[in-house]
Structure formats: structure tokens, C-alpha cells
């Protein structure tokens, strides 16, 4: 049994929220650099140029890359040989969020009583927390600051087996098309396939955490990703919807077994300019 004080969880979450908001990930930066070289539309090139410049300014000024500093989503893998001490695990995560959004001058964007008063919780809590118990004595946290604009354009469909792969392709393309400029393209597209109504959305969100440009080890998923990316980039939406060839930076597919009657599919859109996540192991 390994003891871990929950203060370390809070610190890790705080630091990840701050860094993710100020400093673009190396993969995101690389993807935008490549996109700028490939984009043919002059307005699209201007947008990509501004986004790259924005990354440099945000890092230098310690100002968030985007004013929407997001909902904090945490995927936690807790080793079953870990004994967490010093307080509650979820409480510690929320303490980390609270600290980051105060000391870091990040925008507090969470409201309670969502269908009535919509009162701001004033510290950007609560975080959305997904926890899995795994073998080992480590805690791994993946922390995502998810913006509202692209989240609003995400969709889920309970397709049936007859829709098949073709139905999935159609649904993904339709989702990106409907989102158009609203999701702040170029986007990263997380696609969940299978499982159940609740789990498929989580698969799609988790797929966003994969490094842009990384290879999917499942050959069938990898093939679907390549086909979807090419088809999305033929839509012509382009950077920020001003027209162009780069509408998505990457498509990440994650699938899981499902019921014989079902073919759930979820598309979680992530704005490329603020694709913000960090991974830590304690």
C-alpha cells in the first residue's frame, strides 16, 4: 500500500489547469504549424497565423490563450494499491480547480441551478470527474479545460447495426458541417463508437486527449480516422469557417463493445486553438 496525500492531487490539478490555459501543447503547436503550410485560402492562412501568434503571446504574458478557460474535466486512474490520505479525492480535485482559477486570473464559467437561476459558482467548480480503479500504486490524471463553444456543437446518436460504418461516417460529417464556424475550426474531432448511451460520450471525450499526430494502434479505427479526416477537410469550412482546406487537425476514434441491437456514436468537438490538456502521474 502506497500512501498519497490528497494535497498532491490538488497541486497537480492546479498546475495542470494553469499550464494548459497559458501554454499550448507541443502537438497542438506542431499541428498548427503544419496546417499553416498546407492551407491554401488566404483568409485561412491569416487565421492560422493569428492563432500561432496568440500562442506565443499567451505564453509570454501568462494570459489565457482563450477567454473561455473551460469546464475542467478530469480522467483519473487510481491504482488499487494506493491509499489516499488527508481528505476526499474529489474534494482535492475541486480545490485544485478553485486555486488555479483564482490565482491564475482564469474565467469562472460554471453556473449552478442550470435551468433556473444559473448562478456562477465563482471558482469554476465542480470539475467533471471520471475515475477508474486500475492495478498498481500510481495515480494518473488527465486534465482537460473544455471550452463551451465546441462542446455546444457536439452530438450523440443511437444508430442501429444497419447504419453500420457508413452511418457513422455520415453522422460525423453532418456534425462537423452543422458546427461550421461555431466550434472554432480547425477542430480536433473525438469519435466514440459502441458501449452505451452514457459511455459513448465519455469515449469521445477521452479520445480528445490523445496526442495529435499519434497513430491509433487499432488498424480499423486508424483507417476510419484517416477517411474521416480527409472527408472533413473536403467540406471547405476552413479555419474559423472563412473557407479553406484545414477544417480539422485530427480525428480520434475510440470504440468499445456494445449491445447486439445498438450502434451508439458520439462526436465531441474540440476547438483546435484551445485544445488544452495535461497528463500527470503521481
Amino acid at each position: 500500500m502506497r500512501e498519497i496525500h490528497v494535497d498532491r492531487i490538488a497541486e497537480a490539478v492546479r498546475d495542470a489547469c494553469l499550464e494548459a490555459n497559458y501554454v499550448a501543447g507541443a502537438d497542438v503547436r506542431r499541428a498548427f504549424t503544419v496546417a499553416r503550410e498546407r492551407e491554401v485560402s488566404p483568409l485561412g492562412q491569416q487565421v492560422l497565423e493569428q492563432i500561432l501568434e496568440n500562442m506565443a503571446i499567451a505564453e509570454a504574458d501568462r494570459v489565457p490563450m482563450c477567454q473561455d478557460t473551460g469546464t475542467v474535466v478530469v480522467f483519473a486512474e487510481v491504482g488499487q494499491d494506493v491509499h489516499l490520505v488527508g481528505g476526499g479525492f474529489e474534494e482535492a480535485i475541486n480545490r485544485g480547480v478553485h486555486e488555479a482559477y483564482h490565482v491564475g486570473y482564469l474565467r469562472k464559467s460554471m453556473v449552478e441551478r442550470p435551468f433556473t437561476a444559473r448562478r456562477n459558482t465563482r471558482d469554476n467548480t465542480p470539475a467533471i470527474i471520471h475515475t477508474r480503479l486500475v492495478p498498481g500504486d500510481r495515480v494518473r490524471l488527465a486534465i482537460l479545460a473544455k471550452g463551451g463553444g465546441a462542446e455546444n456543437m457536439s452530438r450523440l446518436a443511437m444508430l442501429t447495426p444497419a447504419h453500420g460504418r457508413e452511418g457513422i461516417v455520415r453522422f460525423v460529417l453532418e456534425t462537423v458541417q452543422l458546427a461550421g464556424p461555431n466550434a472554432c475550426p480547425p477542430v480536433v474531432v473525438g469519435v466514440g463508437i459502441g458501449a452505451t448511451f452514457d459511455r459513448v460520450a465519455t469515449l469521445a471525450k477521452q479520445a480528445l486527449l490523445r496526442e495529435i499526430g499519434s497513430e491509433n494502434p487499432d488498424p480499423e479505427e486508424a483507417e476510419l480516422e484517416a477517411e474521416l479526416l480527409a472527408a472533413i477537410n473536403r467540406l471547405g469550412i476552413g479555419p474559423h469557417g472563412f473557407g479553406g482546406r484545414i477544417t480539422a487537425l485530427a480525428v480520434h476514434v475510440a470504440s468499445a463493445p456494445c449491445h447486439i441491437a445498438s450502434l451508439p456514436v458520439a462526436v465531441n468537438l474540440q476547438c483546435g486553438p484551445a485544445a488544452r490538456h495535461r497528463e500527470v502521474e503521481i
Partner: peptide, 29 residues
């Protein structure tokens, strides 16, 4: 940023107005 409704697009024409987009995700710049 993003789409306007047909009603807003008509009103823009009627009033001789203009809708601009700034780049989302360029808040620091």
C-alpha cells in the same frame, strides 16, 4: 464568431449594418 440567423442577416441588410468575426482562440493577441 459563428453563424447568424436568417432574421439577423435580413436585419443587417435592412439597416445597412455589418457583422464581423474575430478569431476565436486568439484572445491573448
Amino acid at each position: 464568431k459563428g453563424h447568424r440567423s436568417p432574421v439577423v442577416r435580413d436585419a443587417i441588410v435592412r439597416h445597412g449594418a455589418v457583422y464581423f468575426a474575430a478569431v476565436g482562440g486568439a484572445g491573448a493577441l
